[in-house]
Design a binder for these strands. Structure first.
Lengths: 227, 227
DNA sequence: CGACTAATTGAGTCGCTTCAATAAGCGTGG
DNA sequence: CCACGCTTATTGAAGCGACTCAATTAGTCG
């Protein structure tokens, strides 16, 4: 598996030049970095923390389109307006770039555009998987798939950062609260809660506190996620 | 708006070289060009007709991830296996490439990779819009959005091909049957039928035969699609 | 420890699905 | 050109999964 960090595609000197273009910035949890519909002025590389990408209907119902973990690239290149909102789910640290400056730099560095293309294709695959979930799967399947995907991606992020082994984690803290899980899975908050409790009672997962989850029977969870 | 055809990004001589790499192929309606999960050996440029990209759950429920129109690029670059099925909804004519050969060519032609990146970002935007639909909108809103999107994209495809004006069409034939509309919108076929009839009775659209649709009140349709 | 927020639980409703039957569209052959 | 048969679409009735509204409980933080 190749590096998930965009700028690793670049030669050291180019990477340094790119580094000079961006600036490190921290935001507290809850901050919205980009609003949907507003000018798309910035793009960013997530260094630490978790971001949500979301969009909402005219009557205010929110749908989370994706969640970004450390090493992920976020922002809409080559479009004048942002099509989704970007909000910090935890305190975050990002490397910010002006969109146009980044685009100009990318034009000069085909390897970077190549890395962006691969990254975007991976995002598209994830969006497709989520489409199948939202369109055709039951509440239980969606919640199960969410837990499985989260454990995988948290492991990957840890791996990219501190160099773990990349094995999916069985015990972790949810970066999202119940409402956000509901917004991601397209369910009501009560349905998420009931489903989680049902898994808990069935011994498939263990819940401790509001945020902690332990996957006790990954195979069963995978079966539920399939159908 | 820039050209929607990938290879227009290339200089004439490069375009000709790419042309020699591909081969024109026709398939009758109903043919599956790529199966999900099988080796991703080919990619293609759609010349005429309509393709559906779909995926399904273990228990056989299908979800259409997207629909491709003339000038669209289809196939999963840089991945060993295809993540979705590609099926011809009408008779189609495509320009086929070996995936690996196309990738190698793209490496040599940054302008092509750039065009692919923009194309993929547009696909991602569409997937995001569909996520919001499936996760948070009612059956009526989904069907209305489908009709509006279709009229827009048919006009664009016509524009790219024959050089029309690109205005959304008010009268057109559906390239999908009711079941396929259901698979695209994540609804049951009966719900699609009922919704279409409801729009018809309300004078928002006119229906003739199985496939023909005429949008009579685009504004009202847009309002319904919003909520 | 107390106050506030987040999560859980219960009851009732609604929208969509499912199952079943009818009707319409369309190609075929007489 | 029309009758026939097959496929596709429509319509109806019933059921259920997830939502909504409301109340209770559990966590968390000062």
């Amino acid at each position: 598996m190749r590096s998930r960090v965009i700028c690793n595609a670049l030669a050291p000197e180019a990477r340094e030049a790119l580094g000079r273009l961006g600036r490190i910035q921290r935001y507290p949890r809850g901050t919205t970095l980009v609003w949907e519909g507003e000018d798309s002025r910035i793009v960013a590389n997530l260094l630490s923390g978790v971001l949500k990408l979301s969009s909402s209907t005219a009557d205010g119902k929110e749908q989370i389109l994706g969640v970004a973990y450390p090493s992920d690239f976020v922002g809409r290149l080559f479009a004048p307006v942002a099509s989704y909102r970007v909000t910090a789910l935890t305190d975050v640290e990002v490397c910010l770039f002006s969109r146009t400056a980044f685009e100009a730099f990318a034009r000069e560095h085909p390897a970077l555009e190549h890395a962006l293309l691969e990254h975007t294709l991976a995002d598209l695959d994830r969006a497709h998987a989520q489409l199948l979930d939202l369109g055709r799967r039951s509440a239980s399947a969606r919640v199960a798939a969410f837990l499985l995907d989260l454990s995988q991606r948290l492991a990957e992020a840890r791996c990219a950062a501190a160099g773990g082994d990349g094995q999916p984690l069985d015990s972790f803290d949810l970066p999202l609260d119940r409402q956000q899980i509901a917004d991601l899975t397209g369910l009501a908050i009560e349905t998420v809660s009931r489903t989680l409790q049902k898994f808990h009672r069935a011994g498939i997962i263990a819940l401790a506190g509001r945020r902690h989850v332990e996957i006790r029977d990954r195979a069963r969870l995978a079966t539920i996620a399939e159908a």
